[in-house]
């Protein structure tokens, strides 16, 4: 018998006695047997989450306002630009203000376009990259799958974000996104993932980024840029 078999047989033996559904503990010390279908009758977070999570409003305008407000609390900068040209100018202004010399990006439509408009030395992670070179970049410029209004988050995968490291190694992560990538809440973000990626494309990493990297480990005092980016900017148009 392999160790796997042993573990599975211990689990099956253990589960021969049913355990009471949560919330029914005080009905007695001895759990009553569950009806066979009651497990599937349990409420699931997957289908019910929206009813309990914080409210988000109904219109796209409300979502954008909420996203901006949440971002402000999280110390993410949000720049809403009128069009692609304006977004590129905003990115250039940011680059000049911070004196960027080198940036990293990937072949994602609007992120690549914006980075190219900077006219700086750049690494493109698409064809593989040298990790030391990526570490020396002043900013990582990426696309994303969606922005989540409810939590002020960015949903990004290896496919939409130029791999695993581009969005976390350089000290400033800039996300270029379109306004119509805004989704209201977390359940919508998960629905979107199932829509976007089939089994063959399914990314090996999906991340939900909520603000720049942070820690409170020293006396519970907030410090940004613990290991990941110290700054996070979202440029939207």
């Amino acid at each position: 018998m392999t160790e796997r078999d042993k573990i599975f047989s211990r689990i099956r033996d253990a589960l021969k006695t049913a355990s009471p559904k949560p919330g029914s503990h005080h009905l007695g010390h001895h759990p009553t047997a569950q009806q066979p279908d009651s497990l599937t009758a349990a409420r699931t977070a997957a289908s019910g989450a929206r009813d309990w999570l914080p409210s988000v409003g109904h219109t796209e305008a409300e979502w954008i306002t909420l996203f901006t407000k949440n971002s402000f609390d999280l110390r993410t900068s949000v720049i809403v630009a009128a069009d692609a040209g304006a977004a590129h100018r905003q990115l250039r202004a940011l680059s000049e203000a911070e004196g960027w010399a080198r940036v990293a990006t990937h072949g994602h439509g609007i992120a690549a376009g914006a980075s190219a408009a900077l006219g700086l030395n750049q690494i493109n992670t698409d064809g593989g990259y040298d990790v030391h070179a990526l570490e020396r970049c002043d900013a990582g410029i990426s696309g994303c799958d969606a922005l989540i209004a409810q939590t002020g988050s960015i949903l990004l995968t290896t496919r939409s974000g130029g791999g695993r490291a581009l969005s976390v190694l350089p000290p400033h992560h800039v996300v270029i996104a379109r306004l119509d990538q805004m989704v209201p809440d977390l359940p919508s973000a998960y629905e979107l993932l199932h829509h976007t990626y089939g089994p063959a494309q399914w990314p090996s990493m999906i991340t939900i980024i909520t603000g720049p990297s942070r820690t409170g480990d020293i006396e519970r005092i907030l410090v940004l840029g613990a290991h990941g980016p110290k700054k996070l900017t979202v440029i939207l148009y």
Partner: peptide
């Protein structure tokens, strides 16, 4: 800040 789901080693077409 980061909630990250991992589903495998590097897949075909991924860069890292």
């Amino acid at each position: 800040c980061y909630n990250t789901m991992y589903g495998g080693p590097r897949q075909p077409g991924e860069v890292d």
